[in-house]
Write a protein that binds this DNA or RNA. Sequence first.
DNA 1: GCCAATCTGGTAGTTACTATCACCAAGGTA
DNA 2: TACCTTGGTGATAGTAACTACCAGATTGGC
Lengths: 216, 216
Amino acid sequence: MPDQHTTLRARRRAETQRVIQAHAVRLFTERGYDATTVTDVADAAGVSPMTVYRHFPTKEDLVLVDQHGRLVAERIAASSVAQPLVRRIGGALIASAAMLTRGDHGDDPAADERFLLARLRLMISTPALRAKHLDSQYALQRAIVDALEDDATDPDTAFHAQVAASACLAAMHTALVRWAEDDGRTELPDLIAKALTAAFGDDFTEPTGGVSTPRR
Amino acid sequence: MPDQHTTLRARRRAETQRVIQAHAVRLFTERGYDATTVTDVADAAGVSPMTVYRHFPTKEDLVLVDQHGRLVAERIAASSVAQPLVRRIGGALIASAAMLTRGDHGDDPAADERFLLARLRLMISTPALRAKHLDSQYALQRAIVDALEDDATDPDTAFHAQVAASACLAAMHTALVRWAEDDGRTELPDLIAKALTAAFGDDFTEPTGGVSTPRR
DNA sequence: GCCAATCTGGTAGTTACTATCACCAAGGTA
DNA sequence: TACCTTGGTGATAGTAACTACCAGATTGGC
């Protein structure tokens, strides 16, 4: 079996996924999420409802599926253990956001950002999407804690990591909402940095050498 | 019309709600949330499925409905505007948690806490419940910001309040999860205080010019 | 060209939820 | 007591998100 992702099958699979998701986000934006059935999406994409469910387990996944979690976890694992927790996590969140907004795969860089904004607006305004998105952020929180590699035998250390990760993600989420309300006019990484500074103040802005506390 | 809540109708209504929710949480815990249908709950409670939907708009509400949000918002509104944000919000969260765990309406005080624990365990382990619970926390975040009464004409001030509220709630949620994992053996208010301290350090523990707080 | 793996589509469910109807008890009024 | 409005309850029928389960078509390695 060729582990390359460039086999014809894999390329077709990725392409149909892209097409289905694009039509889904467009229809949801035009007619509303609840007013659009999965069958509508399937018809628009030129496939059967069954195929939609094959690629996206739930209707919500048509909007929520992305690579953000993977990006963040990789950045966390690559970050220096010497830095304070909020700085490690916050830095990874900012860097990942920069990658996402810059657009990853050529073509039209602005199109990627517009698509991201459209998805984000849906995630914020539609209760079902908002709920599942928040749950995926909760999953990301656990992934972050795992990626920190604290070898946390001490329950207090583990608790500290959980708190730091959840608070950082909450701050980022607030920045995301603000970014969407602003129609993406502000730079997202800057907004996230601002949110983290608002939450943690010096603990986030000042790196390791700071006068502030290297506390428990 | 008698605005008292003690009319026969209101009492019966509250009682049926209580009975339905109790049977629901019991069945969900015994058989699992997904494996239990709304009809099962209705049968156990001795009512029709329609009646269940009259009292609880969705299946998730059978577990999620509670008074926590109202408690927190009231405490926030009653807190001193002079205090820093995280302290106002954190204080309200701790005080509300104390009220919830102490049990509010007589009878068996430990029963209230056991019921709360059972609900919380379901909220954490069942994806659908977890997602909607997180979404209700997001709604609580906006309620908190409103209750702060900042008259935030300045968008930066509003942003700061959003960030503070979301980060505090994230810390509280981490404490809730820990509390459930611990089967409620630790005092919940203490856990929340610990989480807030872990997240914000001195910003939370040290009040405006005050000495350190009597924490554990 | 051949076989296994995969993609796709159709049918027939289950279940959460909604809309609409009629029935009956609660509670204030004559 | 008799009446009548209000609101809780229940049955029926319908929508839509899924979930097996089965059958045909296409790809990719031999």
